[in-house]
Design a binder for these strands. Structure first.
Lengths: 187, 187
DNA sequence: AAGAAATCGAACAAAATGTACGAAAACGGA
DNA sequence: TCCGTTTTCGTACATTTTGTTCGATTTCTT
């Protein structure tokens, strides 16, 4: 690959990720990116059609690291590669995220429709905590705030799936799926 | 409340939600909203400071319906109000969403950082499905696609929580929480 | 009917967008 | 090192959006 391209892309990526740590993705302009990267306007558009294009490219690049070469991750965190379970696979992913936490934090803090979901999630977590009398705290070592955030977020995921599949499942069934998969049957 | 204000806000809301069903939130401009609502530019800014402000207002209005008056929801869907469990509460919420599915669909389809999460989720679901040999299909009536989407999304929620709390939990512990709350211990 | 409040619309500066083009620079293969 | 190719630069440009201002006008409330 042409060195100039590599240099230009690197400059754009760096500027973009830097900006991402300062402000929301939605408020970052192409102008700011090229100013920060110190490249010509036309140069940017020679590589990316839109700002979304750039984000996609960055995501793609990031994830190529996350999901490739589990073995490497294992090697660097001393897991026996024979124990190839989902749990370990997920653990390896988490280690990778942790190793590059700065980059991922920037991306993870993007938001937009999140305004909506965060409303929903907050309300749900409160709602769930209100029904907690049947739940024995202390029996497990799962932090209460994790449990509430997680269940709220997981329920949102169920709702998202529900809408993706055109609400063809009845609410009762959906809730039963949710309850079954989260072991919240008792509530 | 002044009728003019009510009319103006209604016009803005209608135009906004209409646009929301045609394009992504991020690409909707104030210009389009006031054109569609047929109101003066200054009038819009008299009610909302920014486009995000408007979205927040719409969300707030929408959720005030979702989380208020469970009793009403119960009445209209014949639940015995004595059975006040979390499951029923969630079911009622789902019914409400279903009743107003058109409005909610519009909001739900917003995206932005979703570009990132959807990448992640897709990969995760694939990963999980690869470890499914231990899972007995057919034993439950939970659809396979729901299970995969859900577990992927739920794991993302765990990761989000992880980052919100500054990665202070070890990857192993986080995965064990996830496994415990989703009954995926066996994998 | 009268005073208050909201809307209109036109105008404005500032900024961003996406595109175009020729000149200059950097590249890679021979 | 040379030469054709590719990339970058810089500038320019038309268009669009943004957020604000202000007086005139309309609509509301009482």
């Amino acid at each position: 690959m042409d060195r100039r391209i590599k240099r230009t892309k690197a400059a754009i990526y760096a500027a973009f990720e830097e900006l991402l740590s300062e402000k929301k993705y939605e408020h970052i302009t192409v102008q700011e990116i090229i100013d920060r990267a110190d490249i010509g306007r036309s140069t940017f558009y020679a590589h990316f059609e839109t700002r979304d294009d750039l984000l996609k490219a960055v995501c793609s690049e990031l994830f190529s690291h996350v999901f490739s070469d589990h073995s490497k991750a294992e090697a660097s965190h001393d897991f026996s590669s024979e124990d190839d379970t989902l749990k370990n696979a997920l653990t390896h992913i988490l280690y990778h995220l942790k190793d590059d936490r700065k980059r991922y934090s920037r991306i993870f803090s993007c938001e937009s429709s999140e305004i909506f979901w965060s409303y929903f999630r907050k309300q749900l977590s409160e709602l769930i905590s209100g029904y907690n009398y049947g739940y024995e705290t202390g029996k497990t070592d799962i932090p209460e705030d994790f449990r509430l955030d997680f269940l709220g977020g997981a329920f949102i995921e169920a709702v998202k799936w529900w809408f993706r599949t055109d609400l063809k499942t009845s609410p009762e069934k959906l809730v039963s799926y949710f309850a079954a998969l989260t072991g919240q049957d008792q509530l």
